[in-house]
Design a binder for these strands. Structure first.
Lengths: 129, 129
DNA sequence: CTTGACCTTCCAGTTACTGTAAGCTTTATG
DNA sequence: CATAAAGCTTACAGTAACTGGAAGGTCAAG
């Protein structure tokens, strides 16, 4: 199958598929006589797996580990567990930071009663160290 | 004042100050005879303002507008209001996305009972389209 | 035969810095 | 006074994960 077919079947843009290849996430595919990339059905599964990981914001480098560990069926799940746990921790950390941000912005947003810039309470707040 | 003094007074790294200059966020400073940048006390205020905006995750381009509008004291606060409101909307949007991410990751994290990769429920889930 | 849709590679741009290198000037120390 | 350390300068590269665009080859249809 050519790259555009793989792209529609996995809902990953062709451009991104080529990028994943250079990033070492996807095996270098066979080429047809004309130089076009030629993919197998296995590549569909791998690419969907990658897409699902990316939707969970898992970094490329860690997806690489997840792809690699699947080639060793006897290995323990520790790597997998750790990557998911780390990702969850990152997400929760970001959530906390965003909650503080939201507080600060919400207070700012209501602080100015639509006057002129020279009296703007928002700008005043932002000037304070 | 030289760049390192400005850096300590504003808690913005000297490297970042130079970057803000090339990014058009800071006026090009005067130079001493030896070529060293020479800053005024006004630069302290501007830079603290910029740092506070960055702490609220406001993009450089929008900080540029906020800095510019302060040079027109008679202007209305609309630009300021809009930028803060947009930033707040962005933050809330990201919060929603992260909440979904957290759900998905939390479910994944508890799904595998430490077996082998070949039976790993996490990996199974990630393979499904 | 030519038009349009795909395919290829390579280079540049995105965001907001940060690291590093090479080379000056100034300050501190022996 | 010599020199070494600290601080200043510029310029280039790297980060993450793509995305856009240019230039050019290939293939099927009308």
């Amino acid at each position: 199958m050519k790259i555009s077919e793989l792209a529609t079947k996995t809902r990953v843009p062709a451009k991104t598929i080529r990028y994943y290849e250079t990033a070492g996430l996807l095996n270098t595919p066979l080429r047809e006589a004309n130089g076009y990339r030629c993919y197998s059905t296995d590549d569909i599964d791998t690419l969907i797996f990658i897409r699902r990981c990316r939707e969970l914001n898992i970094p490329i480098d860690e997806i690489k580990q997840l792809v690699a560990v699947q080639r060793k069926p006897e290995a323990s799940c520790d790597t997998v567990d750790n990557i998911i746990a780390e990702q969850l921790a990152r997400v929760r950390q970001t959530q906390q930071e965003l909650a503080q941000l939201e507080q600060a912005l919400a207070m700012l947003a209501t602080s100015c009663s639509h006057k002129q810039v020279q009296n703007c309470a928002i700008l005043q707040s932002l000037k304070a160290d």
